[in-house]
Design a protein around this nucleic acid. Sequence first.
RNA 1: GGUCGGAUGGCCGAGUGGCUAGGCUCAGCUCUGCAAAAGCUGCUACAGCGGUUCGAAUCCGCUUCCGACCUCCA
Length: 497
Amino acid sequence: MQSELKIYNSLSREKEVFKPLNPPFVGLYSCGPTVYNEVHLGNLRTFTTFDVVYRYLMHIGYKVRYVRNITDAGHLTNDAGEGVDRIEERAKLEMLEPMEIVQKYTNSFHEVCQEFNILPPSIEPTATGHIVEQIEMVKRIIANGFAYEVNGSVYFDVKKYSEHHDYGKLSGRVVEELLEGTRDLDGQDEKRSAADFAIWKAVTPNHIQRWVSPWGEGIPGWHIECSAMSCKYLGKEFDIHGGGMDLKFPHHEAEIAQSVGADGIQPVHYWMHANMLTVNGDKMSKSKGNSFLPKELFAGSHPLLEKAYAPMAVRFFMLQSHYRSTLDFSNVALQAAEKGFAKLINTYKTLLALKYIKDDAQKVGTEITEVKALCEEVYDKMNDDFNTAEAIAILFEMSKKINSYKEGLISISTLDEETYSRLYTVFVAFIRDILAIDKEEKHDDGLAEGLMGVILTLRKDVRDKKDWAASDKIRDELLRLSIQVKDGKEGTTWSRN
RNA sequence: GGUCGGAUGGCCGAGUGGCUAGGCUCAGCUCUGCAAAAGCUGCUACAGCGGUUCGAAUCCGCUUCCGACCUCCA
């Protein structure tokens, strides 16, 4: 590949050439789910985005340590005392221990990831497993004078911090406005300013999740876990931090402040933010009631869904847009993607079965140049801030070539061996390792293969006798079982619809 | 209200100061006993109004509309 990898950095609002701190190693952190509930399709878009980032970085030769956390400590929905702890709320609802809730939805999350072909990260740390690290970090922030304790809770002092550092630089907030924007909420009196946020929170006696700290029993603040865990596993300074756009403020902004407040070092070199999945133009979210679960999608069991969709078709649908654009979900869009996806996968299978025939007499320079160019362009597109949409467009160009070789419309010998092998390698790598859309659906054992072999042999007999009625009857009946028979020049093949 | 982002052909969705996005749909053709698949051809768009420029959909300004964040959120 000729081009350098460029990443759009939310911090600078520009695409920057990616320069890792310690090549060939790359530290990648992305915010994982809070496991009080099932993840929905919108959540999955972000995880898919960073899965592709992870896969691509590895593909181009980096040794990546990918850390994606699990938030399993409950956090109050606001700092002002009357906030709800969603994990405990859920625990009461399901009459389970908070840790049972956490385990249940962690398991479910992992299952969904697997179906979506999302790789497990290198390290998947939990917030509750790192209480000590979080407490230590809070101590360091207090020691540096950027936090204060009130009634067993510790708050980050945004005003104090902003006297020395730029709070709001990631999300484009103006500190003065944040500090002025005090809304008179009850129970907010503990905080010196409305902009301050809890990094340790005292809990009421009936709260189930609780840990001992120097400030009494309580729970860690939401933002501190990512700071503490990224620091522990990737260092005080690391390469890439990702997450959904909706985490930019306050979560990521707070992370920067905490890390700088504790250690005086800007933690992240490249901030990446994945945009939202929308439904009829509105952000998909649980509170808006327009979200659905992956399992509903795969089963087609939701009023918004006209039919069931295969996980890989949905993954492809997401990858057909750029991660920084919003992507609008709709049945027509998904069905269009489904067809394009099937086309690409058919080409992939064709390619795996294709045989290269070397014949130097048939070589055509323009064909070789064209195919070589495609192989380079597809990397150029990915190097341009992981533009999967454009990369997929190139794959479709390659697809036309590959199908033409198969159909004999273009002789495969127009390519020299090196170019053909390059095409093969690149196409397979993109489908299988980078976009990772080749996961076969769970089907039966080899029985179908065997039965179809028998049926097609018998059908060939009647076809040889030009008994088209019998031949078509077999084909029509199989079609009713969603099996498509294709009579090609090289014999008959079949596929599931 | 503040901050930021977006408006692209029948639909989805990239991108860009002048050169084909791509997919889906539709029409036609080739191939085929017929289908399916595949290939080819056609359909040429960038919200509106100004400005900069030899040239803008792409840069600047204004207008309209939409969204995100500002509270838990991927």
